[in-house]
Amino acid sequence: MKEGELESVPALETHDLSVAYHKKPVLYGVDLTIPKGQLVGIVGPNGAGKSTLIKAVMGLLPLRSGWVEVFGQPFKKTKTRVGYVPQRESVDWDFPVNVMDVVMMGRYGKLGLFRRPKKKDRDIARECLDKVKMLPFANRQISNLSGGQQQRVFLARALAQESDLYLMDEPFAGVDAATEAAIIELLKELKERGKTILVVHHDLTTAREYFDSMVLLNMRVVAFGPTEQVFTVEQLQKTYGGRLTLLSDVAGETERQLSGE
């Protein structure tokens, strides 16, 4: 938390946010107000604009309409308070860098232009690697990592950004069960320290268990609110449309758990 900042200022607020690729709308009219200290899942079918939403929040895509505020200010002013975990496949893992080099990139934003990482930055990077249990791999070339290890490195890099709001694009995709458990534990710890975390997630079976609140997204916000209110068969049907045939079992299961526990 930043000193002098009102508790009531939301971590993230978007209003009427619309994005289009080549004139084809991908997101429209997204209104979200995400209070501080929440672990929020963004769920929706492929092509629903989940990654687009995250990129639009960080100002990486031109907006067709609407605005974004992070901690009550435009992203440009608060970018050092935002940490980002991109999709694992978005980078070339044959790049000639080691684990430590990648985690150090998380410090670059706070350093700014010209300044070089100091010992303090190195210590922070080490701590973050230790938190994801990857410290013994600090000098390992990144191409020699398993999928789960790569994801942990990305997570350590985001931790090294020392942010208040974290935006994570599918951090659970293609990782082993142990890594998945380690990541969710870490996210809960971050939340307890007052951080806000937005996670793009695709696995409906674990979604209900992981997140306090949820954004159901399919080009527009279908539903947004506390998980128990939002994560219902009806809302999921609306989000996934006809594609929910297979998923309805999952949703049915969830419904039963919600009502019958």
Binding site: V91, D92, M105, G109, R157
Partner: peptide, 16 residues
């Protein structure tokens, strides 16, 4: 460091 992060992960670079 700027060239490194822009080459390895342009999206992160832009967000930083």
């Amino acid at each position: 460091k700027e060239l490194l992060v822009c080459s390895f992960d342009p999206t992160l670079a832009a967000s930083l």
